[in-house]
């Protein structure tokens, strides 16, 4: 579904990604872990078109692309229409817009009124709190509710691939458990997930496969179930000895 081939990305003069490759198969949950400043966010922002790689290609194949297409030069506002939706770091809720407007703007490019109404009902079923607060402003929600809103908004675009940047950031453990079980449910409903996480243990448990990124290069990759017992991963990311 997604194949990143040796991309290099600069932010200002800093060479953040120094030749990164990864792939995501349809139906998978893939997680991307690594320390601060490793370049995890940069990878997701490059996929979503907010950043452009100076070298390398990103191939996408969804029902909305004609075969396998290079999206490394496609601007952000077009990517959503190709079936890839990015849930940004810090959630990016529109705090002045109502909860309902925040959800509806997720469906900005869609024209199918009935499908949008269906998806709205589906999101409200997944996150009942959003339905009951639909008229409040996005900024009035708590951190956990805002994360649900961000995920709900992304679902409103009916993505085939959903990329999430640190959904657990700043949330309490119960809310994180809740959120991750919803993410698993979303995946069961057919959405492919690419997840960036600080919370490595959670990410390894949720995902099928995991990539470990270290200062702009892939250090390790493999089945999450195998990596969770890997000594190096344990030592660096799971707080084990």
């Amino acid at each position: 579904m997604l194949k990143i081939d040796d991309i290099h990305v600069y932010r200002g003069r800093t060479h953040v990604l120094k030749g990164v490759s990864l792939h995501v198969q349809q139906g998978e949950i893939v997680s991307l872990i690594g320390g601060n400043g490793a370049g995890k966010t940069t990878i997701l922002r490059t996929i979503s078109g907010l950043l452009r790689p100076s070298r390398g290609k990103i191939f996408l194949k969804t029902s909305k692309t004609s075969g396998e297409t290079d999206i490394s030069r496609v601007p952000a506002e077009t990517i959503t229409g190709l079936g890839v939706t990015h849930c940004p770091e810090g959630r990016g809720i529109f705090s002045q817009l109502s909860v309902k407007e925040n959800l509806m703007i997720g469906a900005y490019l869609r024209k199918d009124k009935e499908g949008i109404a269906d998806d709205y009902a589906r999101v409200c079923a997944l996150f009942p709190i959003l339905g009951s607060r639909s008229r409040q402003t996005g900024g009035s929600l708590s951190g956990g509710e805002q994360e649900m809103l961000a995920v709900g908004r992304a679902l409103m675009s009916r993505p085939e691939l959903l990329t999430l940047d640190e959904p657990s950031l700043g949330l309490g453990p119960i809310i994180v458990d809740n959120l991750f079980s919803v993410l698993a449910e979303i995946n069961r409903q057919g959405v492919t997930l690419l997840l960036v996480e600080q919370n490595a243990i959670k990410a390894l448990k949720l995902s099928h496969r995991t990539y470990v990124l270290e200062t702009g290069r892939m250090a390790l990759s493999g089945l999450s179930a195998a990596l969770i017992d890997n000594e190096k991963v344990k030592k660096a990311y799971l707080g084990g000895t």
Binding site: G49, P88, M104, Y108, S157
Partner: peptide, 23 residues
């Protein structure tokens, strides 16, 4: 729809683009 896009862009240009809004 245009008004919603304008308010969203005023708040956060990057996220507005992620929604598919042509800023």
């Amino acid at each position: 729809r245009l008004g919603m896009a304008m308010r969203a862009t005023a708040e956060n240009i990057d996220v507005a683009r992620l929604m598919g809004i042509n800023i």
